[in-house]
Amino acid sequence: MESELLLECQRNDRNAQRKVYEKMAGKLYSVCKRYLKNDEDIEEVLADTFYKIFTKIDQLQNHDIFEGWARKIAVNECLQKLRNTKALHIELEDSHAESSDTTDTISFEKDILSLLNFLPEGCRAIFNLFAIEGYPHKEIAMMLSISEGTSKSQLNFARKKLQELLINQNI
């Protein structure tokens, strides 16, 4: 992201904010989509994310890390949404979600992302944080107010469930 554009955002320039929104909305939407199923929730979290970005941008001292910083805000907002809906307090029971259309031949990445939707929200959040975002279990545990053991067992459950789904859908 261009440093001058971010400086203009720090001065509350609405045009600059619109440009940043246009450049980042798709990327941050994809991040939110990995954590949340409901489009309304995703849109709400995305709006909250941009609000936080634009109100806290003056705290960003290194413009080179803007995208990572914005992504971290999006992840934290998704986790906050999950905490507020109590979706992280899940059972380790097998969900019975089945795909209604296994004949789709969309790209592998989209297949994997769609399979994440069949995981319980807590497992999906932990899988995203560990496997995609690269957080260690200790940090995940602190972020979600759970034990490291719970984080590890939820990740293990998510991996097994994804393997089953991959086999069942012949991906």
Rank of each mutant, 00 (worst) to 15 (best):
A97Y: 11
D58I: 07
K19A: 10
K72V: 09
I146H: 03
T102F: 10
D94V: 02
I112D: 09
L115W: 07
K37T: 11
S114Q: 13
C78S: 13
K81C: 10
E43K: 14
E91V: 14
V75N: 02
G134Y: 04
D41E: 11
V75S: 05
A25W: 14
K37Y: 14
A25N: 12
S107T: 10
C32R: 00
W69S: 01
I106H: 02
E44R: 10
L144S: 04
L60P: 05
S114C: 04
K110M: 13
C123D: 13
Y35W: 08
S95W: 06
D101L: 04
Y135E: 07
L129K: 06
S151M: 01
Q169N: 14
S30I: 04
D111Y: 11
E121W: 12
N156K: 15
L6T: 01
D41P: 01
D94Q: 13
C32S: 13
I106T: 14
E133I: 00
I73R: 07
K23C: 09
R18M: 15
D13M: 03
A74T: 02
P120E: 05
R124Y: 00
C9D: 02
I171Y: 15
L88H: 08
M143S: 08
S114D: 15
D101H: 08
M143E: 05
I106N: 13
K152P: 03
T55V: 13
L115P: 06
E98R: 11
L155R: 04
D94A: 14
E67F: 14
S145C: 07
Q169A: 12
I53T: 02
S107Q: 08
C32L: 13
M1F: 15
K152G: 06
L6D: 02
Q163M: 14
E44D: 15
G149L: 03
I132Q: 09
G149T: 06
D48T: 12
L6C: 07
L129S: 05
E121Q: 10
L60N: 08
E93D: 09
E77V: 01
C78R: 01
